[in-house]
Each structure stands twice: as C-alpha cells, then as structure tokens.
Amino acid sequence: MAANGAFGRVLVGVKRVIDYAVKVRVKPDKSGVETVNVKHSLNPFCEIAVEEAVRMKEAGLATEVVAVCVGPKKAQENIRSALAMGADRGIHIETDEEVAPLNVARILAEVAKAEEPSMFILGKQAIDDDSNQTGQLLGGFLGWPQGTMASKIEPVSDTAVHVTREIDGGLETLELSLPAVVTADLRLNKPRFAALPNIMKAKRKKIDAKTPADFGVDMASSLQTLEVNEPPVREAGIMVGSVDELVEKLKGDGLI
C-alpha cells in the first residue's frame, strides 16, 4: 500500500455543522434547532483532522488525502474547504436525512473498504450533536484498532503509529497497527488558514458524488427525537459583602 509515503492513503471524515459562533435556537415546534438561514461551516474537530492528514502528506508520510462527507447538497462547500486546506479529492455521500453516527459509520466503513486507506482520521465529535461515536463505531465495523481523542499522532513504522491521548491521569500512548481509526482532539494541531492560491486550486479538484444507497445503507434512524428544549435559564446571582455573609447564605440555603 505504501508508495511514496511511509504509509498510504489517509481518509478524513468531514461534517457540515452550524457555525460555532451562531447562537443556536430551538424551533417553535421543538422538533430540533433552526437551521434555515443559519451560517454553517466545517466542524472544527474535522478541520483538525484534515490539518493532521495534510501535514502527514506534506511530511511525505501519506500519499493521498481524501475528504469524505455524508451530508446535504450544500455540504459540498465544506468538502471544498477541506480541499482548499490541502486534501486531494473529496467523496460526497449526499443525503437530506439526519446524519446520525451509526449510519454515517456504516457508510464510512463501506468507503474504507473501497478506498483501502492506511488510516481514517475523524474529529472526536461534531459540535452540533456532540455524539463522540462515529470514530468508535467505524473502528468496530471495520475491526480496526482505534485511537480516540488523539493529541498527538506519530508514525513509528510504515505499519504502525503511536497515538497519544489526554486522559484523566495524564497522557496515554497507544501503538496502533495500520490500518487504524484515529479521532482528533482539540490540541492535536492548529488548523491553517486556507491560502488563496489553494482555494483557487480546490475548484479543480474532484468530488465524487454518491448516495447512501450506493453503499447499501438506509439512512432511517433507529432513534426518534421526541422533543428539543432550550437549556433552563440560569438564575441571576447575588453579591455578598463578606466571607461571613457568604457562609451564612450557604448555610441558610442548606448547601453546607
């Protein structure tokens, strides 16, 4: 599989999400959040995954970076962002259905079987549903080792990588044999700004158009959303004049 790079192709999962700066509002019928006329962008953790894959290619470790996206027609913009950052081509599995981790992982597993990558890098979670499941499910479907929430990825040979994870007690380093699934944490890298010459080049890069049916996956979700609500409004605090008064208040409220 390895041609020029120490290992071969790297696939990256990219998801279209509501932009992090948007104040999300619940729809009046409580069926979900408002998405119409709301700014969307590439999920920040996916951006980190793309950056990592592109750096691997620049370092001569990866031969090709492919951005894979399951999402609506407009998600093509977000694939284009990944191409502008340096991914070589895209695969767009178009669907207007809800993009739930289980179905996405099923599709990505089929894409992986067809593309035979050395590594599949995903964001550890998407900032819309915060599921943190797709990478793990994908590893399960493929039977590949997985290193989730990676803060560092270091190749140790052309058949294995070390993945460092931030865990409660400190840092944990795993050795994964390739092919493997890795999910990116915040501190893995700082994604670049897409340079204008690369933006111009991105339009000449190819995006394959597919559907979930091409991979034999039914997008119907096994989960049903009953109701979506705004988080409860936090009550205003009070100012106290002294530590004594604070202690008295806490005691009075039965908190200490």
Partner: peptide, 15 residues
C-alpha cells in the same frame, strides 16, 4: 458570486 469567493471571505474573516 462563486464558491471561491465564499471560501476567500471565510478564510480572510477568520484570519
């Protein structure tokens, strides 16, 4: 007017 203009705006605004 094009996807490139949109990406240009995004990248310059982020910077």
């Amino acid at each position: 007017p094009t996807e490139e203009h949109e990406l240009l705006r995004q990248t310059v605004r982020a910077f």
